[in-house]
């Protein structure tokens, strides 16, 4: 058993980190400045397309990289980490279906639960957005519309959302630790105080548990594993961002700290597919089906 990243997977992650790290760091704050009507940077979207963010699971004959869910999950974790805006999951799922989605020429939004992200900026909306009403979105980086008829949620969309949440969880843990190491009060770094240190430790524990669940779900592609990944990644992202904000103290409550952007994005993603009720019910039903037990025997 080798449940670890392969060298190729590590290399892929490094490339993605490099490209989006360089392109999006400044971009995020430019976008926040456009609040409440942020625009998608089409050049950056095409750059994501070139990087293979949307096409990587398509067969090579169709212009993809022929990679699988594990690689997609690693890429979406990085996108989440870097707070990359836009309907990333919807466009990824539309690759090979909607012309131009794979290459980043087309921006595709999708009704997910009763919400649509980035409707006004999208070239195509799946399955449609009849009767959509704009919300004043809590997340300055994700414009939202409500739609009357809830859309169906693809398990792959749930998994990739969990991967983004994992990225957020890892990022806010890092931000909390950085702050705890450098901020001094009472003559010492606050990370030396157990009350602060333990918040950081708990944050890391949630990240590592969510990581194991998300990566395993990507390997098995099993819907119950995906539901578990979703529940744990939501928790890791939302609780992690809350604790990160707490560790930052008053600065964490300001607009110019990036902490709130992570928390708000985590909240938006946690609502996808109508929240995690369905995942919890699926996990509960699985207990009676006995599938958990047989599944554990096989793997």
């Amino acid at each position: 058993m080798r449940f670890q990243l392969t060298d190729e997977q590590k290399a892929l992650r490094a490339v993605v980190r490099d490209v989006i790290g360089r392109s999006s760091a400044a971009g995020v704050w430019g976008l926040v400045a456009q609040f409440p009507a942020p625009l998608i940077d089409r050049g950056f979207w095409r750059a994501l397309g070139e990087l293979g963010v949307f096409s990587l699971r398509l067969p090579e004959v169709d212009g993809g990289a022929g990679l699988g869910l594990p690689e997609a999950v690693l890429v979406f974790e990085e996108l989440g980490w870097a707070l990359v805006p836009g309907p990333l999951v919807a466009t990824h799922l539309a690759a090979g279906v909607v012309p131009g989605a794979a290459t980043g020429e087309t921006v595709v939004a999708a009704a997910d639960g009763s919400l649509v992200e980035w409707l006004d900026e999208a070239d195509v909306v799946l399955p449609g957005a009849e009767g959509a009403v704009a919300l004043r979105s809590v997340d300055p980086l994700t414009p939202l519309h409500r739609v009357p008829a809830p859309g169906r949620t693809d398990p792959v969309a749930v998994l990739l959302t969990a991967a983004e949440q994992l990225g957020t969880a890892a990022r806010v843990c890092e931000l909390a630790v950085q702050h705890a190491r450098t901020r001094e009060q009472f003559g010492q770094a606050i990370g030396g105080f157990q009350a602060v240190k333990h918040l950081c430790a708990q944050s890391l524990v949630r990240v590592e548990v969510a990581r194991a669940a998300v990566y395993a779900a990507a390997v098995t592609g099993d819907v119950v594993d995906i539901a578990a990944a979703r529940v744990l990644a939501d928790e890791a992202a939302v609780r992690g961002a809350r604790d990160c904000l707490q560790v930052h103290g008053g600065m964490g409550f300001t607009w110019e700290s990036e902490v709130h952007l992570h928390l708000k994005r985590a909240w938006v993603r946690a609502r996808r597919g109508g929240g995690n009720t369905e995942s919890e019910e699926l996990l509960a039903a699985d207990l009676l089906a006995g599938v958990a037990w047989r599944g554990a025997c096989l793997r």
Binding site: V209, A210, A212, A213, A216, V224, D225, A227, A228, A229, V231, L232, S279, E280, E281, L282, L283, A284, A285, D286, L287, A292
Partner: peptide
């Protein structure tokens, strides 16, 4: 119980 299923699967 569903959440605990997620928990122990992840562990």
């Amino acid at each position: 119980l569903g959440r605990l299923n997620a928990e122990f699967r992840a562990l």
